[in-house]
């Protein structure tokens, strides 16, 4: 996922793009074939092409674009498609936790690995992500995904209860405890994991808790303020996307005392309705999409400052 190349090679994990809502990932094998409603594609016809190429299907009745994998595209191609709008929360978390190449980060739970991949991209190669997950099957799935996406070097997945006694301590890994720059919690009872977070954090490091319900936020914020955190701040971010099209927009040729209508341009298609002339103009119009995400969760940020 992190090594972008110009030419598509055998063994590459690529994204087949046939539309915003039609993407899939594919690992290219010499003898492989990809089938979709946009046609069939022999892998060997893809291998050797440039990334970003438009590839026509084997029988020329369709086409797709082949692009490189990113954490964002990967989370779209995951089965749980509910994660894709989560992108903005991920961005906000990484920006506000001040994560960069070299950061040491703790995350719990791992979940689909969507945030983990974004964090790994950002901390690599000097930093590391320690991610903790309670569900064993998710741990396995995540380890597999991270390996396939070439992120396993930067991520340690631990199968553990974030609220348990051991918490986030990995005393077996040198320099882990007390060196964590950022902690992210996505747990049903985040307040129960705050002490465990504190146990691996250093002065000045950041914590973020994501919760869908306001009651969780209330309990978490009280716990944080009692645990030597400052700069406690809860925000909510929602993306609004726009439907933008060059479309025919109908104008009526009604007389008025203020301006002269000028429909002499021959590009306009005219019609008549109820005795009035009308003209269709190509107008570049935009509007927000009607179906939108009304809520993902609240993000509570705080800085651990035990000696301030």
């Amino acid at each position: 996922m992190l090594n972008q190349k110009k030419t598509i090679q055998e063994g590459d994990r690529v994204v087949i793009y046939s539309g915003k809502d039609n993407m899939s990932m594919l690992t290219l094998e010499a003898g492989g074939q990809y089938n979709s409603k946009y046609g069939s594609y022999k892998h060997k016809n893809i291998i050797g092409k440039e990334y970003g190429s438009k590839v026509t299907s084997d029988n020329s009745n369709g086409f797709v674009h082949v692009v490189g994998m990113t954490p964002e595209l990967w989370s779209i191609t995951l089965d749980h498609r509910t994660q894709i709008l989560f992108n903005l929360d991920i961005s906000t978390i990484i920006f506000n936790l001040e994560i960069k190449n070299g950061s040491k980060v703790v995350e719990s739970g791992t979940g689909s690995g969507s945030l983990s991949s974004s964090i790994a991209r950002t901390v690599a190669p000097k930093g590391h992500l320690f991610t903790f997950e309670f569900h064993e099957e998710r741990v396995k799935a995540a380890r597999k995904d991270f390996k396939e996406n070439g992120l396993d070097k930067y991520i340690t997945v631990t199968h553990r209860d974030a609220c348990g006694k051991e918490g986030f301590r990995r005393d077996d890994i040198e320099g882990m405890v007390g060196s964590i720059d950022a902690v992210f919690l996505d747990l049903p009872s985040p307040w129960d994991a705050v002490d465990n977070a504190v146990a691996v954090m250093h002065h000045g490091s950041m914590l973020c808790s994501f919760s869908p319900c306001i009651e969780q936020v209330q309990k978490t914020c009280i716990k944080l303020s009692e645990s030597k955190f400052q700069e406690i701040k809860t925000v909510e971010v929602l993306i609004r996307t726009f439907d933008t099209r060059l479309q025919e927009y109908e104008e009526l040729d009604l007389a008025n005392p203020y301006k002269t209508n000028d429909y002499s341009q021959n590009t306009k298609k005219n019609f008549e309705i109820g005795g009035i002339k009308g003209y269709k103009n190509d107008s570049l119009l935009s509007k927000p999409f009607t179906e939108a995400r009304g809520h993902t969760g609240y993000l509570s940020f705080a800085r651990y400052l035990p000696s301030a």
């Binding site: 319900c213 306001i214 009651e215 509007k287 009607t290 179906e291 939108a292 995400r293 009304g294 809520h295």
Partner: peptide
């Protein structure tokens, strides 16, 4: 109780 939040789906276009 314990589950208050804005609904996940939303009509994003008021006009």
């Amino acid at each position: 109780p314990k589950r208050t939040h804005p609904t996940m789906g939303m009509d994003g276009a008021s006009g």
